[in-house]
Amino acid sequence: MQISLQTYRPALLKFQSLIALLILCLTIGLLSDKFFTVANGWNVLRQISVNVCISVGMTLVVLTAGIDLSVGSVLALSGAIAAGLLRNGIELPASNLYIGFTVFGAIVAGLLTGSVLGWFNGWAITRFKLPPFVATLAMLTIARGLTMLWTEGFPITGLGDSFTFLGTGWLLGIPLPVWISGGIVLVVVLLMDQTRFGRYVYAIGGSESAARLSGVNINRIKMLVYTMAGGLAAVGGLLVTSRLDSAQPNAGTSYELDSIAAVVIGGTSLSGGRGSILGTVQGAVIIGVLNNGLVLLNVSPFWQQVVKGIVILLAVIIDKSSSRND
């Protein structure tokens, strides 16, 4: 009986991300005795939770053949708004009134901020037919500037135990951020697999004109997708802020690149219409494990950037060659 690599090719392609993750874990585990420890496992999961939240939103955007470069800045502004309102409230001297925010109120405000910014991205893209790259690049600088204005360039700290529980707490022996990101993944997977919305997202990415001719309200779906991406970036912002007990004006810088990397490594096509949320989760885990491994192995931060870039490049090349052969 002759068994060739060709026999296993479909399975290898299907599970390429998982295989890559497995090889990565084994390699780092062999080189560092701290990698396969429970504490490090939770640490990695806690760290990737933020990227998972952002990357899930980014996947929706990329599936529609779009891109969202603003997620890092949206994350920063959402976290800063929540922290600022929680810490300082709103003062209305003219009416001698102080409006204070509860933790719940601050979280709602943060989520609203992200969603509104995302909605604005969607509106600019659909209303003015702007390329998503340009519209979200503009939002990247607008949101970062607004964050600087809101925080006056200083971190907002001292947010209290109730708020920091969100990013540092544990529930049933599992870190709360892992529950939150896991819940988001579950909801969005169901949304993509079980609803018309999910099918429309894939249809728009596959062929926008065909989807339009089929009666899909393209603009509405796109606006919804960008709003969700903004909202999910806000969730990431709340997790980062609560974990650090501080809203940093420069939080989330280059997070958009990590999330795009997770999406691409997870097998989602940058030209849209092909990919999955679970693939992106695998991509985020690979990025997280890679980051963690490089730190454990004492690799210089400059080399870390180089290695991450090469991994992304390889992922895209493999993806391209596999889709050509499909």
């Binding site: 009134l97 204070g100 405000a109």
Partner: peptide, 15 residues
């Protein structure tokens, strides 16, 4: 319900 649980009001000078 969301608004009620989100904000509270005080006099600014007291605060």
């Amino acid at each position: 319900v969301v608004a009620y649980n989100s904000v509270y009001f005080r006099k600014l000078d007291e605060k």
